[in-house]
């Protein structure tokens, strides 16, 4: 899976490359409009992470460029501007998603995964993790070929964990993923715990291994020991 990261800030650019590279993505990164245009013209990417404000141009023009060239690359816009207008324009121009800075890398990762799944020509809607299989289209989860029933939040959590497997996910990141950033409940994440506890119970009951670990009280990690 090839990803192009277009971000002016080297530090942020590197973080994204670090995080995504460790998830079996092949990342290329550029910091200017011109370099991005060159890359886009030469190669095909599964997903492009696109910052709108670039030193030598507007990222939205790159979107138009893609459209005119009939390119099918998935695009997720990352912008510091939480302007509704920008968001609408971006999506109208063919972007697949829009993420406002600052975001969690785990959130970026789960959104990229969703875009790639939607765009993938192979039509693979299945997400595997050992004995766990998720059918993204049907929104069903099976463990060792046995269906299990999850609530909407538990299902979202499981997809989020599996896409970000082997990563430590902070409670803050999990809360923002599940409830959006309108959820302004600061340091009180007790309500996350209930969902995680239930999910874990259901997975174990269906015969799955125990993959969910609490990490030093600050977050969770989904991995084999």
């Amino acid at each position: 899976m090839k990803i192009l990261i277009v971000e002016e800030q080297p530090a942020l650019n590197r973080s994204m490359v670090d995080y995504l590279s460790s998830q079996q993505y092949v990342c290329e990164s550029v910091g200017t409009f011109r370099d991005a245009q060159e890359k886009i013209d030469l190669y095909q990417y599964d997903c492009i992470v696109l910052d709108i404000m670039l030193p030598d141009g507007n990222g939205l023009q790159l979107l138009q460029h893609l459209k005119q060239a009939n390119k099918l690359d998935g695009v997720i816009i990352i912008s510091a501007r939480d302007e509704l207008d920008d968001k609408i324009t971006g999506l109208k121009l063919g972007a697949d998603d829009y993420l406002t800075k600052p975001f969690h890398l785990s959130e970026l990762s789960v959104r990229i995964a969703a875009i790639i799944r939607r765009k993938s020509l192979q039509g693979s809607n299945l997400l595997h993790y050992n004995e766990i299989t998720i059918d993204i289209q049907a929104k069903t989860v099976t463990i060792k070929d046995k269906d299990i029933t999850l609530t909407r939040k538990e299902y979202d959590l499981l997809v989020y964990f599996i896409v970000n497997k082997n990563r430590v996910l902070s409670k803050n990141a999990i809360a923002e993923h599940l409830w959006g950033d309108a959820m302004d409940m600061a340091d009180n994440y007790d309500f996350i715990y209930a969902h995680i506890k239930n999910l874990r119970k259901k997975l174990l009951a269906a015969g799955s291994d125990d993959y969910l670990q609490s990490i030093y009280g600050m977050g969770y990690k989904f991995s084999t020991h």
Partner: peptide, 23 residues
């Protein structure tokens, strides 16, 4: 808009670095 850009970008860097450190 500029203020947003100027503030949100460093915040984004801080948050992403923290996400990486956390691993």
């Amino acid at each position: 808009a500029h203020a947003a850009h100027e503030m949100q970008t460093p915040l984004a860097i801080m948050r992403s670095k923290l996400d990486v450190l956390m691993q």
